[in-house]
């Protein structure tokens, strides 16, 4: 469960409120620069908000002593130092949250990086970096997943894999929150949608609720965010 309540950050976020619930995929949609990444970074304790709260399972992210067992987060890049191997990166992360070493091999296998585990992360392609980032997110087998533009840089097979993976995660009862600036990515995968534009939430609800009165979710998106895009 993710609860964002009246979050504000000067020039970026204005009174942002929404929830992402267990067992559902929540799509966080908005044009580039609308405040998606900013919201997620505040939620994960990386950036500071001026006002409001962002809670994961009832607590601020920083209040969890082993946060990797609560939230799995995928942000830009893999987060691995370029000189470190994928395995070494996952090992220190596991150590820091007192996770069994066996999890490292398990998540590497899960994302299909077992054969590249000993290679330096600096030499990884964008797709491999994303997969390493996802492996890190899954280390603690967390009930909540937060993913910023998760399919960026993935090839079609990777996108297909990611979509199935996120659907399965929600089916297992996990809370899945993913941001995207592309409608197509969310159709058929999101249960709920939150649309953000220029730092404000302009619509939220189930996909049906938000697209009511419009032909498609895409039409709804452009109608709601009209004026930001010049196309």
């Amino acid at each position: 469960m993710i609860a964002i309540d009246h979050l504000s950050r000067p020039g970026r976020l204005h009174d942002v409120s929404f929830e992402a619930r267990p067992g559902r995929v929540t799509g966080f949609l908005g044009p580039n620069g609308a405040g998606k990444t900013s919201t997620l970074r505040v939620l994960l304790g990386l950036d500071r908000a001026r006002g409001g709260t962002a809670l994961v399972s009832g607590r601020r992210y920083a209040e969890w002593s082993r946060p990797l067992t609560v939230v799995g987060a995928l942000l830009d890049g893999s987060g691995a130092h370029r000189a470190r191997s994928a395995r070494a990166h996952l090992r220190w992360m596991a150590t820091s949250n007192r996770l069994p070493r066996s999890r490292v091999a398990e998540v590497l296998d899960l994302v299909g990086l077992t054969d590249e585990a000993g290679k330096r992360a600096g030499g990884f392609s964008l797709g491999m970096s994303r997969r390493l980032g996802l492996a890190a997110a899954l280390l603690g087998d967390p009930p909540v997943l937060v993913l910023d533009e998760p399919v960026n840089g993935l090839d079609p097979a990777g996108i297909r894999w990611m979509r199935a993976f996120l659907r399965d995660a929600a089916a297992e009862g996990r809370t899945v929150l993913l941001s995207s600036h592309l409608m197509g990515e969310l159709s058929g995968i999101a249960d709920d949608v939150v649309i953000i534009d220029r730092g404000r939430v302009v619509a939220s609800g189930t996909v049906d609720e938000v697209s009511a009165g419009h032909l498609t979710l895409e039409d709804a998106f452009f109608a709601l965010t009209a004026g930001t895009s010049k196309w």
């Binding site: 304790g45 990386l46 830009d76 890049g77 893999s78 987060g79 370029r82 970096s129």
Partner: peptide
């Protein structure tokens, strides 16, 4: 603070570090 790659400007190990150790 070293950039993790040329593909993603601004990505650093610090993100992973703070996700694992937010305090």
């Amino acid at each position: 603070f070293t950039p993790t790659g040329d593909d993603v400007p601004g990505a650093r190990q610090l993100t992973a570090t703070l996700l694992a150790t937010p305090r």
